[in-house]
Amino acid sequence: MRVITLECPDCGTVVAANELEDNRIMKCPGNDCDSVLRFDDLPEDDRSFYLENKEQYRL
């Protein structure tokens, strides 16, 4: 199964696609990081794959 993540460009915190998709826009969960992370920050290919296979990423 393809595991899709996004790395915060400022602090290196990694966030899984399911978390990004749940929030759409979120403050980076890294300690003391003010960056904003978006599902749309993922590469187009990753976003499309995730949305087409969304059920895989739910329990």
Binding site: G12, T13, V14, G30, Y57
Partner: peptide
């Protein structure tokens, strides 16, 4: 320490997979 947010508990292999870029 670098934090890696897995979100939903999709299994140990998913958790490990989330660490690839780290």
């Amino acid at each position: 320490i670098t934090y890696i947010v897995q979100g939903r508990p999709l299994g140990l292999a998913h958790a490990v997979g989330c660490a690839e870029s780290f």
